[in-house]
């Protein structure tokens, strides 16, 4: 059994394997598939609870992942932010001496969540400028309703 505590290197290795089969497009195709087939819980939480669904989703996952993070929720403004001070997944990959992380590992967080949230009426912004230090930040903002002329 691959324990859940060693899933992240297995996940990164899957990206490597897929890229060797079909280039970066094959990895993105998988991320789309994973978003459609594995993130139904995020989708359902946001449909049921609006922007609070983001808080509920990441509250569950990040605490189980022992992440070092700050989340903020402003329901009235329709704003949720997640500042990852130290991502446990990227941090683990950076700490491994004998394994090299997939070169575009962190982009899965851009593809997976954007694909769920944007069709539900939210803007999704993801800052990867400090991923070499296992830091990132994502912001989810409720889009204002379109004005009618």
């Amino acid at each position: 059994m691959i324990p859940c505590t060693e899933f992240i290197p297995a996940y990164s290795a899957l990206f490597d394997f897929l890229e060797s089969k079909g280039g970066p497009g094959a990895v993105h195709d998988f991320w789309n598939y994973l978003s459609d087939n594995f993130l139904q819980n995020l989708h359902d939480l946001v449909v049921a609870h609006g922007i609070r669904g983001c808080w509920m989703y990441w509250n569950h996952t990040l605490n189980e992942e022992a992440a070092d993070f700050t989340m903020e929720l402003d329901e009235e403004a329709g704003l949720f932010s997640l500042t990852m001070h130290r991502c446990p997944s990227k941090g683990m990959l950076l700490a491994l001496d004998h394994v090299t992380a997939y070169h575009d590992y962190c982009s899965h967080c851009d593809t997976l969540y954007r694909r769920v949230l944007e069709p539900l009426g939210y803007e999704y912004t993801y800052d990867m400028s400090q991923i070499d230090q296992a830091r990132c930040r994502l912001v989810v903002r409720r889009r204002p309703p379109a004005r009618t002329p």
Binding site: C4, T5, F7, W55, N59, T61, L62, N63, E64, E65, A66, A67, D68, F69, T70, M71, E72, L73, D74, R86, P88
Partner: peptide, 14 residues
């Protein structure tokens, strides 16, 4: 609402 957690606050088991 704000939530801040350190890695040491939780066990790693997702």
């Amino acid at each position: 609402e704000t939530m801040t957690r350190r890695a040491s606050d939780n066990a790693y088991l997702h």
